[in-house]
């Protein structure tokens, strides 16, 4: 159903810590691996060993160069997947009702049985979070691992998205933004988490934690010499030093 729920009980989503992400791409293949056997059609790859491979991935990690007004240039790695927007344009444009936002937790999903593969939802998504699968002919997107987070067949600890479970640096956090006390809400608040392109009115659920300030010259007062070695010579230095013990 294509109209958006007025509100959702939970607002499940991710916090992605750009201060910690080393760009290792682990979340990319963790996601690929899980969803290649999970929700809906598998994530096909065309020409996998050929000259022009092209496959479906639900999570991509970019690497950007950022030049601050002063100081050295920085490299910042930037994971990009569905933000599970509250005003998800990808949902409202869908003519078949295949795209929908779950009323209970706000997860935006594609019902592949209803999808006619028109691609309009991907056009409507400003964040490039949807990729049409060339084999299955249906739209694929991050499911927030809806088939993990409630899965009774998984141990409690594993009921979190594959990319979160797999991230070696712990730069990805999963939780409920509707609960101001939740780990993701507090973390986002503490570290100034922000939404992507808020002015497009999509009201993303996911938050990005900005990188901490870098290359701040340490104001640790420079070390004071023990004494004037030139004057006292090595012996003087040694006496002063060992005299201390």
């Amino acid at each position: 159903m294509t109209t958006l729920p007025a509100t959702t009980v939970k607002k499940l989503g991710l916090v992605i810590d750009l201060d910690t992400c080393v760009g290792c791409q682990a979340c990319v293949t963790a996601c690929k691996g899980w969803n290649d056997q999970g929700y809906g059609a598998l994530l096909s790859d065309q020409d996998p060993y050929g000259a022009n491979p092209s496959g479906t991935f639900l999570n991509r990690v970019h690497s950007y160069a950022v030049q601050p007004p002063e100081g050295a240039a920085q490299i910042i790695n930037f994971p990009r997947s569905c933000l599970h927007c509250e005003d998800a344009p990808c949902v409202t444009v869908c003519p078949t009702g295949a795209s929908y936002k779950r009323a209970e937790d706000g997860i935006v999903l594609v019902n592949e049985d209803a999808c006619m593969g028109c691609g309009l939802c991907a056009w409507a998504c400003p964040y490039g979070a949807r990729e049409m699968d060339a084999d299955a002919g249906v739209m694929k997107k991050c499911t927030l691992c809806v088939d993990r987070i409630y899965n009774d067949n998984l141990p409690e600890a594993d009921r979190e998205p594959a990319c979160v479970r797999g991230c070696p640096t712990g730069a990805r956090h999963f939780g409920d933004f509707a609960d101001p006390g939740s780990a993701v809400s507090t973390l986002s608040a503490a570290r100034g988490g922000y939404a992507l392109m808020p002015d497009l009115g999509t009201r993303p659920t996911n938050r990005y934690l900005p990188p901490r300030k870098k290359d701040m010259r340490q104001d640790a007062s420079l070390l004071a010499p023990l004494l004037d070695i030139q004057a006292t010579g090595f012996a003087g230095w040694l006496d002063r030093l060992l005299g201390k013990i």
Partner: peptide, 30 residues
């Protein structure tokens, strides 16, 4: 990576000495 994650969680300082600033050195504070 797990270790760096722990340091970041505790807000410890990481310094990267490297001609190239990618990966671990990209998240280094200095």
């Amino acid at each position: 990576k797990i270790g760096l994650g722990k340091l970041k969680e505790r807000g410890c300082r990481v310094i990267g000495v490297n001609p190239i600033r990618t990966g671990y050195n990209a998240v280094a504070d200095d």
